Simulated assay, not measured.
Amino acid sequence: MRLQNKVIIVTGSTTGIGKAIAIRCAAEGAKIVVHGLENDWGKEVVEQLGKDKAVLHIEDLSNEGTPERLVQLAINTFGKLDAVVNNAAIVASSNIHTTGLSFLRKLLEVNAIAPFALIKAALPELTKNKGCVLNIGSVNAYSGEPNLLAYSMTKGALMTMTRNLGDTLHRENGVRVNQINPGWVLTETETIRKREHGLPDNWYEDIAPVYAPAGRILWPHEIAAAAVYWLADESGPISGQVVDLEQHPFIGRNPPKDASAIVKK
Rank of each mutant, 00 (worst) to 15 (best):
S62F: 00
K120D: 11
E196T: 01
A212R: 05
N129H: 14
V34E: 07
L148S: 12
G183H: 02
E205T: 11
G183T: 03
A83N: 04
I23Y: 01
Q4L: 13
V91C: 12
R176H: 06
Q179I: 00
D201G: 11
C25S: 14
I113N: 06
I136C: 10
C132E: 13
R171T: 13
K53P: 00
A26T: 14
P255I: 12
L101G: 12
L148W: 13
I192D: 13
F103V: 00
E196V: 00
A54P: 10
V55M: 07
G240Y: 07
I75R: 10
E125S: 10
H57A: 09
P237H: 00
L186F: 11
S13C: 05
F116I: 14
A212L: 08
D60T: 03
T14Q: 01
V33I: 15
G12V: 10
G65E: 07
L101H: 15
N135W: 01
L186H: 07
F250T: 14
A157E: 10
G131R: 06
R171N: 09
I8L: 08
Q179N: 12
R253G: 15
I217G: 06
R253I: 13
V55F: 10
L73T: 14
I136Y: 01
P115V: 10
E47F: 10
A150K: 00
L3H: 01
R24I: 02
G198I: 09
L149G: 10
I223R: 00
A121M: 07
K80E: 10
A259D: 14
R2Y: 12
N181K: 03
L165G: 00
K128M: 09
D60Y: 02
C132G: 02
T160G: 13
F116D: 03
S143I: 08
R69S: 14
P200G: 06
A92L: 13
V177T: 04
L70I: 00
D206W: 06
V110I: 15
F103R: 05
I119R: 00
I207S: 01
K31W: 07
N86T: 05
A92F: 05
T160I: 04
E196S: 08
K155D: 05
L3Q: 03
R105T: 13
N254H: 13
N254L: 10
G166Y: 00
V46K: 01
I262D: 03
V139S: 06
Y211E: 09
Q241E: 15
N135V: 06
V177H: 09
V71T: 08
A74W: 05
L186C: 01
V175Y: 03
G36Y: 05
G215I: 11
T162Q: 09
R24H: 04
L73C: 02
V210F: 13
G215V: 11
V85W: 07
N202M: 11
E205M: 11
V46C: 15
S239P: 08
A214P: 00
R2V: 05
